[in-house]
Design a protein around this nucleic acid. Structure first.
Length: 572
RNA sequence: GCGGCUGUAGCUCAGCGGAUAGAGCAUCGGUCUUCGGAACCGAGUGUCGGGGGUUCAAAUCCCUCCAGCCGCACCA
């Protein structure tokens, strides 16, 4: 179906084109009418004609009779009020459309989304929250748009620390180490290894030898390394389950995967004439990057000791993703401190012809999670906050809230609901703010049922559903007519019809928060409607109409939330 | 020093070229014998960090200054 906005835009475009081909009508939603077109003033300026006269000309040729009424206001705004007949038709189509008007991409793409990226043998902490949650929401949004998403979890599973980690594993014994790694204190494992490395020369020596063995492909060393990696992947999966994140073990393609490609990366760069040796390291100097002394800044592909840095594996990953996976678009959901590094990697990949201009490649940045003191979120004692601890605390709070309101659920059902609420609180708080901004983590506020929160949206959804549970006769979708006599009905209808634009906007800008804003607005429109328009108590056609509006609202909330990775429980 | 990000109501945040700058929370006042009151309606508050400029129109674009955060060659 063609959305309401799109219908209006198309009609306006014809009229604007008649005066100047391609002139933008600048169509927006409005508080004065339903929509307003602001493009007249700019066009009038270009034509050197009085704006109101241009507006009159446009209205004359505007074919909107079956859609909306128009009037000129102020200096030349076109205020559009959609007709009830048109709304009725649109809602009828919406009701019959499982996608609620959201179109699928005309040209589905293969999209690689790189997100989460925790480190093997280390605990996941708040630092991984945003990449994981935002990345997963984008993956779901892209999938719903009809794209083929290839999720990549670029875990840190290689490098010099693995020498000491493996030696520590050997010291502990594999059985003991395995249980530590899976159940308990991952950071403790890492810290112990580190402190032995720092305090014991013997251990340091063994660790270094172990790194060499690892890089040399020694089978026993690789076996031990696999123990570490597999334990970690199991642990990651548990965290992803807790968060309801779609990443699976198959999406884990860590740094180690690119090892066998690094040499050829270097060779290709050399062959392309991009490689420069500087202070013993093999570098590429992409244009436009300077160090603090104003000298060209290198991307170090191979270190002076012969080892490869992460630039090399990032380059190999691009070459692999474009060359082998045939990615047509790549998103890196990675913290903003990596901005320069990634820019350089992308620049080099372009120079090396691994990254054609036709492939959109974007660094999707995000701000920091701050504590109540507005500094980087840490525990009271100054340690990083573990993701699992964060989720568990949210679940406990959800429990308390459920008890307070006297839930009739208990046991597993109650726990499941508490989990759903906790996840909604954490994810929605993260997704509903502009991605690049820092935000203050305040569990109390996030999990509240009032305000712009995940649980509020879930609650709104549950309330709609409850209407259908109470209805004596089952609701039959499809035969409703929408008279929209009450203002709250009309407002809700307009909200329901605006889903496609909200979705498209979130997708195009890689900003899930635009969808959040939309859903919150829709929920508010619904509660106003709910307050003033009795549903079950009304009769006949009016009852059918209101039930149909409720049905659409429930579906819209559920769809919107699901695409953000948030559950919409039918009852709370 | 260079580069990037940020600075909007008491608090948390939207808005990023259009008509009097919005929401949530908090505050105050109403509604309602409530299809789940964890509701709805209404009210107040802002040199949109400061200053210049571009434009018919600037919180939004450009320049500059101030404040804060982050990066700037071998750890990923």
């Amino acid at each position: 179906m063609t959305s309401t906005y799109e219908t209006l835009r198309e009609r306006l475009q014809v009229a604007f084109d008649a005066l100047e081909m391609g002139a933008d009508p600048v169509l927006r939603t409005s508080e004065r009418g339903d929509y307003q077109a602001n493009g007249v003033m700019a066009l009038a300026k270009r034509l050197s004609r009085p704006p109101r006269e241009v507006a009159a000309t446009i209205i004359e040729s505007l074919d909107l009779a079956d859609v909306a009424t128009v009037e000129v206001a102020g200096p030349g705004f076109l205020n559009l009020t959609v007709t009830t007949e048109f709304l009725d038709r649109q809602l009828g189509e919406l009701a019959a459309d499982e996608r609620l008007g959201v179109a699928t991409a005309p040209n589905p793409k293969r999209v690689v989304i790189d997100y989460s990226a925790p480190n093997v043998a280390k605990e996941m902490h708040v630092g991984h929250l945003r990449s994981t949650v935002i990345g997963d929401a984008l993956a779901r949004i892209y999938r719903f748009a009809g794209h083929h998403v290839i999720a990549r979890n670029h875990v840190g599973d290689w490098g010099t620390p693995f020498g000491m980690l493996i030696e520590h594993l050997v010291d502990l014994g594999e059985q003991a180490a395995a249980s530590t790694l899976s159940i308990g204190d991952l950071d403790g494992f890492y810290r112990e290894a580190r402190s032995k490395f720092d305090s014991s020369d013997a251990f340091k020596g063994r660790s270094r030898a172990r790194v060499v063995a690892l890089q040399g492909g020694d089978p026993e060393t690789l076996r031990l390394w696999h123990v570490l990696v597999n334990q970690s992947i199991t642990y990651f999966s548990e965290v992803y389950d807790k968060l309801d994140v779609t990443l699976s073990a198959e999406d884990v393609v860590g740094e180690s995967y690119y090892n066998h490609l690094l040499e050829s990366v270097v060779e290709d760069l050399r062959a392309a004439g991009l490689l420069v040796e500087s202070e013993g390291a093999l570098c590429v100097f992409p244009e436009g990057f300077q160090n603090r002394d104003g000298e060209p800044l290198p991307l170090i592909v191979r270190k002076s000791d012969g080892g490869y840095g992460y630039a090399a594996s990032d380059l190999a990953a691009i070459r692999d993703r474009v060359g082998t996976l045939h990615a047509q678009e790549m998103l890196y959901v990675v913290g903003v401190p990596q901005a320069q590094h990634l820019e350089m990697v992308f620049a080099v990949a372009r120079q090396a012809d691994w990254l054609p201009d036709s492939v959109r490649c974007e660094h999707v940045t995000f701000g920091n999670v701050l504590g109540p003191d507005h500094k980087m979120f840490k525990t009271r004692s100054g340690e990083t906050v573990k993701l699992v601890a964060l989720i568990d605390e949210a679940i406990e709070r959800a429990f308390v809230i459920l008890d307070d309101r006297g839930t009739d659920l208990d046991g597993d059902a109650k726990y499941l609901l508490a989990e759903q609420i906790a996840r909604a609180a954490i994810k929605y708080a993260d997704l509903s703010t502009e991605r690049q901004h820092d935000y203050v983590f305040d569990l109390e506020r996030m999990i509240a049922f009032e305000g712009d929160t995940g649980p509020y949206l879930q609650y709104a959804h549950a309330r709609v559903r409850s209407i259908f549970r109470r209805a004596a006769t089952p609701f039959v979708p499809g035969d409703a007519h929408f008279a929209l006599a009450a203002p709250a009905e009309r407002s809700l209808a307009l909200g329901l019809l605006a889903m496609p634009e909200a979705f498209t906007s979130a997708l195009a800008s890689l900003q899930p928060h635009r969808l959040c804003t939309y859903l919150f607005d829709l929920a508010q429109r619904f509660t106003s409607f709910y307050d003033t328009c009795p549903v079950l108590a009304s009769e006949g056609a009016l009852r059918e109409e209101r039930l149909a509006l409720c049905d659409l609202t429930a579906r819209a909330l559920e769809l919107g939330l699901s695409v953000l990775g948030i559950d919409a429980p039918p009852q709370m």
